[in-house]
Nucleic acid binder design. Sequence first.
DNA 1: CAATGTAGTAATCGACTGATTACAAAGTCA
DNA 2: TGACTTTGTAATCAGTCGATTACTACATTG
Lengths: 224, 224
Amino acid sequence: MTSPAVAGSGASVDEAPADPGKRLSSEERRRQILVAALAVFGARGYEGATTDEVARAAGVSQPYVVRLFGSKENLFLAAIEDALARMLAGFRAALADDSPHDPDITPEKAAAKRIGQAYVDLIAVRGLHQTLAHAYLLGSHPAIGAAARQGFAKVWRFFRDEMGLDADESRAFMAEGMLISTMIGLRIVDDYGSDPQITELFRSCFPTELPHVLEVLPRGTDRW
Amino acid sequence: MTSPAVAGSGASVDEAPADPGKRLSSEERRRQILVAALAVFGARGYEGATTDEVARAAGVSQPYVVRLFGSKENLFLAAIEDALARMLAGFRAALADDSPHDPDITPEKAAAKRIGQAYVDLIAVRGLHQTLAHAYLLGSHPAIGAAARQGFAKVWRFFRDEMGLDADESRAFMAEGMLISTMIGLRIVDDYGSDPQITELFRSCFPTELPHVLEVLPRGTDRW
DNA sequence: CAATGTAGTAATCGACTGATTACAAAGTCA
DNA sequence: TGACTTTGTAATCAGTCGATTACTACATTG
């Protein structure tokens, strides 16, 4: 395994392997591998990703990845659980944030804006949105499908119960989220500025966060 | 190849192989294979699907699938092109439909409703929504990513130019579409009725089309 | 009927990949 | 120091999959 950097059919996901020869606790190594896994699974999907690519991105050997997580399937399940936990943590922090906001809008509107921003900010966690989106499409898979449904329902419950939105508002929120995830997975940002239609679509989706999004999203030849 | 019906790790997609021994024109066979491809790619994704599974679903041998389309990648590209053409054809038919509508709503609202309905009706084309959604997540893939971006932009242009929506309305439309695709890919319908939260989410997404959706969407042990 | 083109398959190959095994090296602690 | 645990790798295997090759059977046409 570990083919000599043949650069597969498309993007390569190169995480910094950190300084070599360093021994870490298995817990810390596990966290590193999860970060790498989000990037690789996000770019290639569950089946398209290889444990070897995750390993190289994390700076460890392929067998070690398999041993730490038991199997590729378990690694993917751990990755989406991690992604979901990060997302809900970000949402809860944004919800609890009581810094002064524009007095012209209601506190509910202000909270909604913060949470939308938190969702967009998660773009910075490489592959998080894409990995979740991939998981959402694997409903037919016995193990992954069940986990994905549970995760999706968890987000729904956050909007309904913790944020206090009604069903229609929650649906609208999730719909915007799915669109944003789709556009990230599409790498539509690559065409921003070149195609006027795409530019318009992009502007419409990130009305306020545009500068931040363009900054945090690698473009052009940059691969992730 | 063609393992003896070992039923992979999850769903099996069994298309009727029609009566055997029948020779068809390559054009007709191509169409059959595209139907099978949508079902298989939709359930398993691009990398997860195998040309052998597509072949069995279409009732032909695996090498013939490869020969007719050149490669698995070309087959996938043909599948998403077919899916998109079907979708836009459905949209255009719904837009042109001038049957009498509720006089309480504007013609624009009525057209929007018809097109939403047309989108939901495409659920009947097995795997169409899911295959497109998979394609949308492969933005990093050199060939598929480019095709997916073009297709996505095509839909956007339909809403803006042919349907005459403004940017915000178009975005809202596409967002709802992405949410619907996600819920289909998740197979959330499987949990409809069992989990009250899911039932609510589902009802919120298909407010009017619910009976039709529940009818057209196979549930429970039924695999697709 | 011969000739040529078209639809289709069986067999098989080479590359890839997840997993396993066996082993090495570094820390830990009595 | 020496036994034991933990982190980590090299080597390799068995299964899978897309693609290729070589072939057969049916159809069409002159």
